[in-house]
């Protein structure tokens, strides 16, 4: 309907080949989040095989270097250090 996507260039991106693995992982995650994590069962990680397959696909297809550095293990942005992060990366 109407102007859903006006440019073909933007309607698919590099990670589209991983779409079905992404859906499988996100569905699994949503279930794990509601049924395990929120109920206090956080000692066991869920969706491990779904994550591995999806992540492998991403590492092959994610061609944006700014994004792919987040795929390297354990790069987690600390929310409390937003300002600091910005000043580190904001130098041009």
């Amino acid at each position: 309907m109407g102007i859903l996507r006006d440019s073909n260039r933007s309607s698919s991106s590099a990670t589209t080949p991983c779409a079905h693995l992404r859906t499988a992982y996100h569905n699994c995650f949503n279930r794990w989040y509601s049924e395990k994590f929120l109920k206090g069962q956080w000692e066991k990680e869920g969706c491990i095989s779904e994550w591995e397959k999806y992540r492998q696909c991403l590492s092959q297809h994610l061609d944006n270097k700014h994004l792919s550095r987040f795929l390297e293990a354990d790069v987690v942005v600390d929310l409390t250090d937003q300002a600091e992060f910005k000043s580190k990366t904001g130098v041009s």
């Binding site: 991983c18 956080w42 293990a73 987690v76």
Partner: peptide
């Protein structure tokens, strides 16, 4: 357009 999970840590 697209949302991908890049990393997660429990």
């Amino acid at each position: 357009i697209e949302v991908d999970t890049l990393s997660h840590k429990l």
